[in-house]
């Protein structure tokens, strides 16, 4: 099974009635690294919350790792398969010591203590935190360290897909560089929502552009981010380091219909051309279809 996340005609309105997601469809295969971009209020966080089974009720279909999020059982089970790193680590780190917080998820899964200990050590190691950190309290940690503890807490549950909401928002350039190194070393399917387009360019292979609750583009990250007209229209900008030639090529590709432009009324399945690091073979793509 190569299809990990399937979203079809997803619509969601806040209790106050404001529409937040308006007919979103996309599929995600194992091993894909997706950047979710868009202006403020585009619905990025709402989409992530929906994928994590935290919004109810929504219209449309969301399947994550075999869990149907339209059902209460599916929304409960999805937490064993999907990890969520929240924008503010302070919302996520609930325990008063680092070790307790990383162990929190695995203990909730009902794992034996030895296994939990192993996962705590392994996760702290994977995010580059020394073992001496274990007994430290959250308010003695820097922003970067808090971010790492939050990520370690999610990794310790060994999810199949990780969602990250604005992981760079409170990090300095060094913190961002270190986060990028941590992410590079993690062979895990992920969706990263970020305003930091350089960071998206560095850590993702595919980009989803969201605006006003609709999916406006879906394609290889360099191609979407190099498209000047598209980016400006949705309140974004092309990262400086993309050369002019590439920008022209991206514009031409869009004109030729090579970038995905979804029509909310007629959603069609788009099999992404170059997922990384395990591109699905063409014969696998049909398995994504509902």
């Amino acid at each position: 099974m190569s299809c990990l996340v399937e979203v079809e005609r997803l619509r969601y309105a806040y209790p106050q009635g404001r529409s937040a997601l308006d007919g979103i469809s996309f599929h995600l295969s194992h091993g894909e690294r997706v950047g979710l971009i868009g202006p403020n209020g585009a619905g990025k966080t709402t989409l992530l919350l929906a994928l994590a089974g935290l919004l109810d009720p929504f219209a449309g279909t969301i399947m994550v790792a075999g869990c149907n999020l339209a059902t209460a059982a599916g929304r409960r089970q999805v937490h064993q398969k999907l990890g969520f790193v929240f924008q503010n680590p302070d919302d996520q780190i609930i325990n008063a010591t680092v070790a307790d917080d990383v162990a929190f998820g695995p203990l909730n899964l009902g794992l034996p203590e030895d296994e939990v200990r192993r996962r705590v050590d392994q996760s702290l190691h994977r995010v580059g935190l020394p073992t001496e950190c274990r007994d430290r309290v959250p308010f003695h940690l820097s922003s970067g360290e808090k971010r790492r503890v939050a990520i370690a807490g999610v990794l310790a549950m060994e999810p199949e897909v990780v969602l990250m909401d604005e992981p760079t928002s409170d990090l300095d350039p060094r913190g961002r560089r270190e986060l990028r190194q941590i992410l590079d070393a993690l062979p895990i399917t992920r969706i990263i929502s970020s305003h930091n387009l350089e960071f998206v360019l560095d850590t993702c292979d595919r980009a989803l552009l969201l605006d006003e609750g609709q999916l406006r583009a879906d394609g290889p990250v360099r191609q979407v981010l190099a498209d000047e007209e598209l980016m400006l229209r949705h309140g974004l900008e092309v990262p400086d380091r993309i050369p002019a030639a590439e920008r022209r090529a991206a514009a031409m590709a869009r004109a030729a219909g090579l970038t995905f432009h979804p029509d909310p009324n007629h959603p069609h399945v788009h099999s992404h051309p170059h997922p990384h690091p395990h591109p699905p073979t063409p014969s696998e793509s049909p398995s994504c279809r509902p």
């Binding site: 929240f86 307790d100 929190f104 899964l109 203590e113």
Partner: peptide, 22 residues
């Protein structure tokens, strides 16, 4: 904050117990 904490807890399978390895 309570609302976001509640969501973050749900994502990590919180069932009302704060266990520890200590």
């Amino acid at each position: 904050r309570t609302e976001r904490v509640r969501q973050a807890l749900a994502c990590r399978g919180f069932q009302g117990r704060l266990r520890t390895l200590h």
